[in-house]
Design a protein around this nucleic acid. Structure first.
Lengths: 158, 158
DNA sequence: TATAATTCCTACTAGTTTTGTAGGATTTAT
DNA sequence: ATAAATCCTACAAAACTAGTAGGAATTATA
């Protein structure tokens, strides 16, 4: 159930981009440095994102990347799909990356039904959270006065 | 976001086991054959499940496996955790497999917060569905009179 | 016009993980 | 005895992930 680093890096950098109100392009070098991402790896990732229209590039000195659309119209799910491929936990519930199950009859396969529920639950989150939402959340969490040990907000088990 | 074959096979075989009302042990050979799972691979998987108490084994001729507990008390999530390890989409929200993010401050990391929501959504399904639930669902789906092309129940995109 | 900063593009590679295979040892019902 | 099972460990092939490498092309600016 893991998110790849590709997606993780892509999301972090996109969110960083989204947090820049100003419309001038941000060079990858900055995004990479701020988020501790290997620059060359991020280049590849942004190539892909650019080809999908998520970001726009401006070549040359003073160039860099900007979002391809307003941040509120870019859902995290879209970025993840572009970078990771499918979201479906099993391939037999994927239109795009469909592959048959080993089960004798998909129509009655209980695992398939449950995994479909899982998929619905996942996309319920990631397709309803935009880059703008995410950035806003970052800000509202910022500087919680730091009383004591910060109690690991949202920190959870396995 | 993919479920490993280990987990998939483990779940399919466990669900198969759960569908046997009768308490006599079922040999792996049968489970493997019915669910198109390589026998030797399933052996490994069931070794692990047995060590965790999910199933019990009975050695020798006429032996096989039975569930370690009533099917309604075995949640799919438990099986997945045993076979796949963590469920958290990013390691920085896992207690057991915790690893720090690359982000500068976990407390304000928006991606972490969203991924935490994703994790909650996932476990909301898999920790609330027991083997018994899954099996019951299989049955209720069975023989829907097959009018026409069976319309791909619960079939969805990426 | 030279220089530096930047994206663009493709290929390669090292490491890890996944998905098995193999081979036999042990136990037990008949 | 024999056959049918589980038990256990090691190995191996293939796929995937997470990068590295090296340069080409473009553009602002001094």
């Amino acid at each position: 159930m893991k998110l790849s680093k590709r997606s993780k890096y892509g999301l972090l950098a996109s969110m960083d981009l989204a947090s820049h109100k100003d419309l001038s392009p941000v060079p990858l070098k900055d995004l990479a440095k701020r988020n501790n991402i290997p620059l060359k790896f991020l280049e590849q990732i942004f190539l892909t994102l650019r080809n999908s229209g998520i970001v726009r590039s401006q070549i040359g000195a003073g160039g860099g990347y900007t979002l391809g659309r307003p941040a509120k119209y870019i859902m995290l799910g879209e970025v993840i799909r572009i970078l990771d491929g499918t979201i479906a936990p099993v391939s037999c519930i994927s239109k795009i990356a469909y592959e048959p199950c080993t089960c004798p009859d998909e129509r009655t396969c209980a695992l398939r039904a449950v995994m479909n529920q899982v998929r619905t639950a996942i996309v319920g989150v990631i397709d309803n959270t935009s880059l703008a939402d995410a950035v806003a959340r970052t800000k509202s969490r910022r500087s919680p006065k730091r009383s004591g040990r910060a109690k690991n907000i949202g920190g959870i088990s396995r």
